[in-house]
Amino acid sequence: MNKVKRRDFLALSAATPLAGGLLTGGTFLESHRATLSARERVRQRYFPNVTVVTHEGKKVRFYDDLIKGKIVTINMMYAHCADVCPMITANLVRVQRLLGDIIGRDIFMVSLTLKPEMDTPELFRQYMKGYGIGPGWTFVTGEPDTLELLRVKLGFTYPDPEKDKDDTLHIGNVRYGNEPKVLWSACPGQAPTAWLITALSFVTPPPLKRKLLSIAQSVRAAQK
């Protein structure tokens, strides 16, 4: 029996897709992958470095400017969402207030819109004002195709294509992670606030971890 030659399957898996011209992101020479770091593999697969627009109206690169080198939370929402988004936003606002200047210095928050055609930087600024959202939390809009690509890459989806079209069915979770350490998980946006802070402690280095855990503890103590 012939052994499958390594270069054969590398060549195969790099085979040109039929609709060559259609493909925008994500193609690269597979044979170079063997030398890639885990971090780089994850970046290539999940964090397209597309241009997006922040609530300040600035054009930034998704990976380079919002994710790279950071501990982050990522969620999806839209300004006029009356269903689950307001509860999740309110919960994240509580997290931001409780963590104070940790947000914007050690941990960053990113909210991506599901409705880029409606959510302008201006509307986002009003939305942020309404919730009293401080610095360190970026609201992101941009080209619809770009936001759709990010939604799918970050797994805010439903396996049934019909249900996937319903924006309320797949947006409840907040991704959290430490990009350089390649630690990624997710937690319900409606989880208890103290638990959200605890989950963030899973991906933070020891001094900050202790700080987060003590904040979470004081939140619980205050509730009792």
């Binding site: 269903d83 069915l169 797949h170 409840g172 979770n173 319900p188 989880a191 638990w195 605890t198």
Partner: peptide
């Protein structure tokens, strides 16, 4: 249940402390 994509038991979520 799956609530807006969040996995839940009796509409609540995991919390180690409670």
């Amino acid at each position: 249940d799956r609530l807006n994509g969040q996995w839940s038991i009796n509409s609540q979520f995991m919390d180690c402390q409670e």
